[in-house]
């Protein structure tokens, strides 16, 4: 397990978590064992692209088509935080 998420890494949701839309909070949330995690819209978009097929670079490119700008370091830091909680698994082969 590395501390930095490589751009060639392929992030995917861990098997024990799932996402759903929380109408009360009007936010996408991630459900894990004994935890509910609310995501802001940018975070939800990133997580939705974590399909285990796309690389981090692919995700940044796709976000670039949707947003006025994309801060690569913020995407990587976000994924690192999720990976450190084991909600996201990153493979790099």
């Amino acid at each position: 397990m590395t501390d930095t998420v490589p751009r060639t890494g392929r992030p995917a949701l861990a098997r024990f978590v799932k996402t759903r839309y929380d109408k009360a909070r009007e936010r996408q949330v991630l459900l894990g064992p004994e935890t509910v995690v609310t995501l802001n819209p940018t975070g939800a978009d990133i997580l939705a692209l974590c399909d285990g097929q796309r690389t981090v670079g692919d995700i940044v490119d796709e976000l670039g088509r949707r947003y006025d700008r994309v801060v690569d370091d913020e995407v990587i830091a976000f994924l690192e935080r999720l990976a450190s909680r084991r909600w996201v698994v990153i493979t790099d082969e």
Binding site: V36, L39, T42, D45, L82
Partner: peptide
């Protein structure tokens, strides 16, 4: 021309 969303720093907040 499709309008682009405004980038915000991606964040999460964790809460039986």
């Amino acid at each position: 021309m499709e309008s682009l969303s405004i980038w915000e720093t991606p964040e999460f907040e964790e809460f039986a």
